[in-house]
Amino acid sequence: MTDTSSFPDDLLQLQERLHRAHAEHRAYLADLPWSVEPCTGWARGERFSHRGDVPDSPGWSDEQKTTVDRMWAEIRELSIAVVDHRHWATVAREDVVAARMQLKKLTRPIAPADVTEAA
């Protein structure tokens, strides 16, 4: 499988939404404090730390926890919708893994680095 015509449009759209949901989740987590609950930081020599000194973490607010939970729920729902899609019943059992990987590859957004390398 090398083209999108082998996948139904709704499955392609579900997988694209799943990629986008994962990216939004990762970006949101990157801006949050390192600990969900308030936690005292430490200096490099006190504990193992590949990042050096670790500052105190104020923890996540209730709103931030709710947002993360909502994002995870969306990721789970989209994952289930992709995996349970009726298209997979039409793919030979021994080809499902390769087809699934092809779907992911076809729908993965192009990273800015990929655009400059292609030019």
Rank of each mutant, 00 (worst) to 15 (best):
I80V: 14
P55Q: 06
P55G: 03
L12H: 07
D69N: 09
M101V: 15
L11S: 05
A92P: 12
V82I: 07
A118P: 01
W42R: 01
D56I: 02
V83C: 03
E24S: 10
E37T: 15
Q64I: 11
L29Q: 05
D114V: 02
Q102I: 02
E37A: 08
A118F: 02
D62R: 10
G52C: 04
M71H: 08
V96N: 12
P8I: 08
K105I: 15
R17K: 12
Q13T: 13
W34F: 07
L103I: 08
H85A: 04
L29A: 04
S49F: 00
W42K: 00
Q13W: 02
H22E: 14
I110N: 10
H22A: 10
A99C: 06
V96H: 07
S79L: 01
S79I: 04
E77L: 04
D84N: 11
G59F: 00
G45E: 11
R70F: 02
R93P: 10
W72E: 15
A99F: 02
V96A: 10
H85M: 05
H85L: 04
V83D: 14
S35R: 08
V97P: 04
F7R: 00
L29D: 06
I110R: 11
A98H: 11
R86H: 11
A30M: 08
P112A: 07
S49D: 14
L18R: 10
W42D: 01
S57H: 07
P109D: 11
D62W: 05
H87Q: 03
K65T: 07
M71Y: 10
E63K: 02
E94L: 09
V36S: 06
S57A: 12
S79C: 00
A92T: 09
W34P: 02
P112K: 05
A98L: 05
D114H: 02
P109R: 10
A89R: 10
G41N: 09
S49G: 12
V54T: 14
A98S: 15
R93T: 15
H22C: 10
E77D: 15
